[in-house]
Amino acid sequence: MILRVEKLNKRFGGIHAVRDVNLAVEDRQLHAIIGPNGAGKTTLVAQLSGQVKPDSGAIHFLGADITRLSGHKRARLGLARSFQITSIILPMTLLENAMLAVQSVCGHCFRFWSPLAADADVRELAMRALAEVGLEGRAGVVAAHAAHGEQRQLEVAMALALKPKLLLLDEPMAGLGKEESAAMIALLKRLKGATTMVLVEHDMDAVFALADTASVLVGGRIIATGSIGEIRANAEVQRAYLGESA
């Protein structure tokens, strides 16, 4: 088991955003977390990746307790994430973005003198990460000028370049058109099996196409968890969530 979450709680003032959440993610599985708007998905992701510290509960990653660990340390352990709102370095080219991710993995970066652009190894690895999401032809484009779909793919490429043990994807289809969504689903299908993933997603078609297992979050609580078939059949889930979106 790669990720184990126990009785996680988070309150913001009067709002109990996450209540007693338990999660278990197995190696090389794709576990989806679904739920309507305001269900606490964002807060849960922020706690998993370390931006928000839980009030109580524990998060175990690769057997170690990471509940109190800062975000960058979690990333170092192999927990990479993508952001719901595209989060890349806009003035840099796609390649430069990917190279940042690569240089994070290969050792410390207190190097003040030799230009990164001349570092063939870093460039090579970054190109490979871009190639993995099909962006190798767009390496020289400034991220701000790239299409929205490409920016989302770059997010995934940067997370992949970290060689993560677990990839946390926060609504990777958000804001994508039909074709771009299809491309993203195809991309995640390719990655499936090689990388363990937690997919937080609104788009039910994507979830049913991709996930092995899923948890349903409603009102900060997990109301159901199980294989994707069980979730699809679960009456409570139908009522709480699927009914309204269908």
Binding site: G71, R76, S87, I88, F110, F112
Partner: peptide, 23 residues
């Protein structure tokens, strides 16, 4: 233009992304 400067530049424009990358 060295690694250090790239991290600084990245952090100027998007600090949370840089932290998520492990910096």
């Amino acid at each position: 233009h060295a690694r250090f400067g790239r991290v600084i530049f990245g952090s100027k424009h998007n600090d949370s992304r840089m932290q998520a990358l492990g910096f």
